[in-house]
Design a protein around this nucleic acid. Structure first.
Lengths: 200, 200
DNA sequence: GTCTATACACCGATAGAC
DNA sequence: GTCTATCGGTGTATAGAC
């Protein structure tokens, strides 16, 4: 298993000014929240005119949701990138788990933005398509149960706890400002704990 | 162990109009978010004049933080209410765990509000006193490790995972709209999983 | 303490030139 | 596509009567 899971999200995916707008918005939203960040401030930080912002996103809400979609898609791509056929289920889970947490470490603004977004009313505005992304890991749990590798619990419940743990461990790492060697230990240790909980 | 963990929060603790304002604010914040809820709307729903709101809270931010403090204190009181001396550590943990989750079920608005608040920039405005409330469970973990009841992991890390799991399981219960008998099963089952993870 | 009335800043969004 | 200029709407907070 490789050691580094770096994965940048927004930087390369869209063109010039639009990218600047998204990057500026991300930083400011995380710092000040959605409300306290006027579009004028975003435009200024992005180095574009106020009107230009509304050329790309016809409302502020649309910008916010677009930013979330962008980030979430990038995370999913990043986590699934290392998928191989020849891999035990435990290794696959460990890789998913590690990649997700390291992604949060490499992209702290993106991570905090998603947290903020998910528990906001904007969450109701995202497409069902994007919402169903979590289905993937639930399916993997079902497969694991069928193969008698995982304990026969409600898959959705286990999935929820796992996602919650990814957020929790990430939060812990960020709060404690853990650098690489210690960080890896914490990730491994917590994975072992969780695996002990879910595996037969 | 008793079966019902009901625990209302805001309703009784403060006087008349002020209580109406907090209740109205809570409902509207959860429905619309902080931004999309003007003070005028809060005042209207509370049945008071706009100026009255600013008599009790000199800024909107102050109102938001006060609401969080109120709710958080209520939750803490509720969880600690059943503390007894003669109780095994496992029972105490199970009671804390169960009470916290059931509190979220009984107070869905309060629960969603805290989620929204914690991941917002307002979180930076709360007193250090309130922030340190989580210290209590961490200390209990340390005690458990010393007594060789719990595995010798980083206490903070375990605490973070536990809190994350409480949120996660609550979310699962709410999303699945589980009623009492099934809900209890899920809580017990998930606690057993978690206890298996943390206990020696 | 509670109300009415209002000041005034500010923001989201548009119009239209280039 | 990008800019400047601007408008209409709205929100926080205050002033002052009761």
């Amino acid at each position: 298993m490789k050691d580094v899971y770096l994965c940048r999200v927004i930087s390369q995916s869209v063109a010039d000014k639009q990218r600047d707008i998204l990057n500026a918005a991300l930083t400011l939203f995380v710092e000040n929240g959605f409300h306290a960040t006027p579009t004028s401030m975003i435009a200024k930080k992005a180095g574009v005119a106020n009107g230009t912002l509304f050329h790309y996103y016809s409302t502020k809400d649309e910008l916010i949701v677009a930013l979330y979609t962008e980030i979430k898609t990038g995370l999913a791509k990043c986590v699934l990138a290392g998928d191989t056929e020849a891999e035990t289920m435990k290794d696959k889970w460990k890789r998913y788990y590690t990649t997700a947490i390291e992604w949060g470490v490499d992209n702290p603004k993106e991570f905090r933005f998603t947290q903020q977004f998910i528990s906001s009313p904007y969450m109701g505005m995202v497409s069902d398509e994007l919402k169903k992304q979590g289905q993937l890991t639930t399916d993997l749990i079902k497969e694991g149960i069928k193969k008698k590798i995982l304990k026969a619990n409600e898959p959705e419940l286990l999935n929820t706890i796992l996602i919650g743990s990814v957020y929790a461990v990430n939060q812990y790492i960020m709060d404690s400002k853990l650098a690489y060697p210690e960080r890896k230990k914490v990730i491994n240790k917590s994975f072992d704990m969780l695996w002990g909980m879910m595996a037969v």
